[in-house]
Amino acid sequence: MAEGMVLAPIPREKRISKKDFREKYVKPQKPVVIEQLIEDWPAYEKWSLEYIQEKAGDKMVPLFDDRPISSKFKFNEPHTEMKMREYIELLKKGPTSYRIFLYHLLKEVPALQKDFKFPKVGLRILKQIPMLFFGGEGSKVFMHYDIDYANILHVHFHGKKRCILFPPSETRYLYKVPHALIAREDIDFTDPDYNKFPALKNAKGYITELNHGETLYMPEGYWHQMTYLTAGFSMSLRAAPRNLRNLSKALYNLFIMRHFDNYMRKLKGQRWIDYKNEEAIKRTNKRNKITQ
């Protein structure tokens, strides 16, 4: 890990009671990995790339890659699509940048809903939207926070994934792109260029590696960057923000910010994207009194 980047290991609990989870992690808004939260799910034994291929092989799935955000695509618009069977074959062949992002596979294949149950951990989980994410070896999800400021239980299957998190308090150091939910995409958070992004030296975050069946709790508004160390997939269960201020931010993001950003991309094209990236550096350095 690059010198100067302060990333503490995310705490781990083998098992945890509802009361302890709420008191130790939800109320203070601290992340945790729960290693055996889902061992009673059928999915714990059954879910693999081969199983998903068998059950959902004919479904067309939206795919994203690691190309920089551009004015050619709307907010969260996929780059291409293919059948799930073909995509999993691609994952099996080796490294690929193609990922599935926020896909409601459980709605498309209702039989998969029998393989899991909503954990009773003291969160009011939104049962309508369990989402799945897939990635090939080496594929990355850029540093971002979620549009709805949800409390998230992120359950990983089939392989290993590295997760880097920053609490909302560290936003001032992360070169956040204005009118967006992301940090500058050209930042490598495993080996940052401190000459170009000096404020990152002050950022304090967390890191862990998720194995099959482990669950990462990410509190409201936490920044996260994921790297698939092997091909695999994850499920996110979401609970609405408990903090009213975060709820208001979520509503703003959903009903104003993303529509404004799509409008400006259409109006100004790549000039809008370039402007936002330049402003990310200017605003962050100014906020931290950095001159370059």
Rank of each mutant, 00 (worst) to 15 (best):
P167L: 05
R287P: 00
G221Q: 06
L153I: 10
I52V: 10
N211Y: 12
I38V: 15
R258S: 09
H212V: 14
H156N: 09
N285T: 01
P167E: 01
K107R: 13
F101S: 07
G136A: 04
G57E: 09
G57Q: 04
E35W: 06
I273A: 06
R184T: 10
K107M: 07
F134A: 00
N262E: 14
Q292G: 11
R12M: 13
M257G: 04
L216G: 05
T227K: 01
E45K: 14
Y206T: 04
D66I: 14
R184L: 15
P11S: 10
N246Q: 14
M218D: 05
E220L: 09
E3Y: 08
V121C: 05
R12P: 02
T190K: 11
S139A: 11
Y173A: 08
P62A: 10
D146C: 00
A43H: 00
K161L: 11
L174Y: 03
P31Q: 06
H158Y: 13
L237G: 03
S169I: 10
K93A: 03
K93G: 00
L244W: 15
D65H: 03
I100A: 01
L247C: 09
L237W: 03
Y263S: 09
S248W: 12
K46C: 05
G135P: 02
H156Y: 10
D274Y: 05
D261W: 02
A240W: 09
N211A: 12
V32S: 02
R22K: 15
D193M: 01
S236R: 02
F260H: 13
V155N: 08
I52R: 04
K266G: 00
P78T: 09
F134E: 02
R184A: 13
D65M: 06
K282Y: 09
K114A: 15
F157E: 08
M60R: 00
F233V: 03
L165Q: 04
D186K: 02
N277W: 10
I38W: 00
S169W: 07
L254W: 03
G94H: 03
L106S: 12
F101Q: 08
E220Y: 06
V141L: 13
L90W: 01
N202E: 13
F157S: 08
D40S: 15
A203G: 06
E89G: 13
T208L: 09
A199C: 07
D186T: 09
T208M: 05
E3K: 11
E39Y: 01
K74R: 15
E39L: 07
N76M: 15
L244G: 12
F197S: 02
K93S: 01
V33L: 08
C163T: 09
K30Y: 03
K14P: 00
C163R: 06
T190M: 13
Q36C: 08
L251Y: 14
I182C: 11
Q128S: 13
P130F: 00
I290T: 06
P219D: 02
K204Y: 08
D186I: 08
A199M: 06
A150Y: 12
Y263E: 12
S97M: 01
A240R: 11
I100Q: 02
M226R: 01
K276I: 11
P198E: 01
D191R: 08
A56K: 04
K266F: 07
R15K: 15
G94Y: 01
P68W: 11
N253Q: 10
K266C: 06
A111M: 11
